[in-house]
């Protein structure tokens, strides 16, 4: 598998705060790659950098070997890199169909084609029944699907998902996991930030762990959750030994 996206030594400084510190990782083409880490680890900042919304203080982002650091979001979308937002950003006054069609217009000039693509994507993410509803009228789960549908309608090669499962109940998570897998199976590489470990374990081929702006571990989901450094990043210093001690006792 070839490398689709490479993040090399990226740092992001906001005044005195180093939000991302020398982070490097890769996303293989055709994979579902996870980016996990405790709150405030810098995941969303890293996403903003990769998708062109922010320019890193230092470091590089490579797209199939080409330097795309700081390139504008709309140009990246044209190249095939699309993102969703953690806080969903629907076009509130528009219907679900029109919301998704905005994404579809990127590669289809004619309205009829864009609408047709939007309806196809809506089916893929399970929104066919809500096509005529205003986006603002949907449930949280529905809005997450709209967010997914809009990004998917741009015809991406790489899809960046920022916590699409956050705020969903377990049955909604169960419903959306196959949707994400279906997207990958249709040939779109996925990089996802996720907190819902059940989904990460289920979906990801490879996981990178970010804590306090640094990549502290990577590997398969099973390797990563067994890594003491990861356990400590989530639960605090010494947690790994205490847990191990209790298991022994």
């Amino acid at each position: 598998m070839s490398t689709m996206l490479q993040v090399q030594g990226v740092s992001m400084r906001f005044g005195g705060l180093l939000a991302v510190a020398d982070a490097s990782f890769e996303v293989a083409e055709g994979s579902i790659t996870g980016l996990i880490g405790p709150n405030g680890a810098g995941k969303t900042t890293l996403f903003a950098i990769v998708s062109g919304f922010q320019k890193p203080s230092s470091g590089q982002v490579l797209w199939r070997g080409e330097d795309i650091t700081g390139r504008k979001p709309h140009l990246l979308a044209r190249q095939g890199l699309s993102r969703t937002f953690q806080i969903v950003q629907p076009f509130a006054g528009l219907s679900v169909r029109e919301n998704i069609a905005v994404g579809a217009f990127l590669r289809h000039k004619r309205r009829a084609e864009a609408i047709a693509v939007a309806e196809r994507v809506a089916e893929q993410v399970g929104l066919t029944a809500e096509l005529d509803k205003p986006a603002a009228a949907l449930t949280v789960s529905g809005r997450k699907r709209v967010e997914l549908g809009k990004a998917l309608a741009t015809g991406p090669r790489l899809l960046l998902l920022d916590e699409v499962l956050a705020g969903l109940n377990p049955s909604e998570v169960r419903d959306i996991v196959p949707v994400v897998r279906g997207i990958r199976d249709s040939g779109v590489t996925v990089l996802m930030i996720e907190h819902v470990m059940q989904a990460v374990m289920n979906l990801c081929d490879r996981v990178h762990v970010l804590a306090q702006g640094r990549i502290i571990a990577n590997g398969t989901p099973a390797q990563v959750v067994a890594n003491p450094a990861v356990v400590e990043a989530y639960l605090g210093h010494g947690a790994a030994t205490r847990l191990a001690g209790r298991a022994d006792a």
Partner: peptide, 11 residues
Amino acid sequence: ENEEAARALGV
């Protein structure tokens, strides 16, 4: 409706 979201969709 939402300029940031539009930019992310290639606008």
